[in-house]
Simulated assay, not measured.
Amino acid sequence: MPYHKNKQQAFQAAQQGIEDVQGLYTEIVQDGASYGHQLKHLKNEVNEAYQQIENALEVASDHQRAQLERFRSDLETIIHEVNLPDN
């Protein structure tokens, strides 16, 4: 993924990242046999989404910045809900 993007592309990448994380989060079945695998996949997606948000924040408009901060807050909530360990 190229480092230099316009504001809209960077924002859309961050938005897609948070949507991917939210989708995985809703699919996790905590008592299922593949829970550990799902959790690892979720952790990878969370890390990628955080990076996309950070990249987008570098070029974001004020309106986009507010939404990106909400995305980051949503990620923190998901991490807390599943007790996802830090890196």
Score class of each variant (00 low, 15 high):
His4Lys: 15
Lys5Ala: 06
Lys5Cys: 04
Gln8Val: 12
Gln9Pro: 05
Ala10Lys: 02
Phe11Arg: 02
Phe11Gly: 01
Gln12Thr: 01
Gln12Asp: 07
Ala13Cys: 12
Ala14Cys: 07
Ala14Gln: 00
Gln15Met: 03
Gln15Arg: 09
Gly17Pro: 06
Gly17Thr: 06
Ile18Pro: 00
Ile18Asn: 03
Glu19Gln: 15
Asp20Trp: 04
Asp20Leu: 10
Val21Asn: 08
Gln22Asp: 08
Gln22Arg: 12
Tyr25Pro: 04
Thr26Asn: 08
Thr26His: 09
Thr26Phe: 05
Glu27Gln: 14
Gln30Pro: 09
Gln30Met: 12
Gln30His: 12
Asp31Ile: 07
Ala33Asn: 14
Ala33Asp: 15
Gly36Pro: 06
Gly36Tyr: 10
His37Val: 11
Leu39Glu: 10
Lys40Arg: 14
Lys40Ala: 12
Lys40Cys: 06
Lys40Phe: 11
His41Val: 10
Leu42Gly: 04
Lys43Ala: 10
Asn44Asp: 11
Glu45Gly: 01
Glu45Val: 02
Glu48Tyr: 12
Gln52Ile: 00
Gln52His: 08
Gln52Asp: 04
Gln52Val: 01
Gln52Trp: 00
Gln52Met: 05
Glu54Trp: 06
Glu54Pro: 01
Glu54Ile: 08
Asn55Ile: 05
Ala56Phe: 07
Ala56Arg: 04
Ala56Lys: 06
Leu57Cys: 00
Val59Pro: 02
Ala60Leu: 09
Asp62Pro: 06
His63Gln: 13
His63Arg: 12
His63Asp: 14
Arg65Leu: 06
Arg65Met: 10
Arg65Phe: 08
Gln67Leu: 09
Gln67Met: 10
Leu68Asn: 04
Leu68Met: 11
Glu69Arg: 13
Glu69Ile: 14
Arg70Glu: 15
Arg70Leu: 10
Arg70Lys: 15
Phe71Gly: 01
Phe71Arg: 03
Phe71Asp: 05
Phe71Leu: 01
Arg72Asn: 14
Ser73Leu: 10
Asp74Thr: 09
Leu75Tyr: 01
Glu76Ala: 06
Thr77Gln: 14
Ile78Arg: 02
Glu81Asp: 15
Val82Ile: 13
Asn83Asp: 15
Leu84Trp: 04
Pro85Gly: 08
Asp86Ile: 05
Asp86Ala: 08
Asn87His: 10
Asn87Cys: 05
Asn87Glu: 11
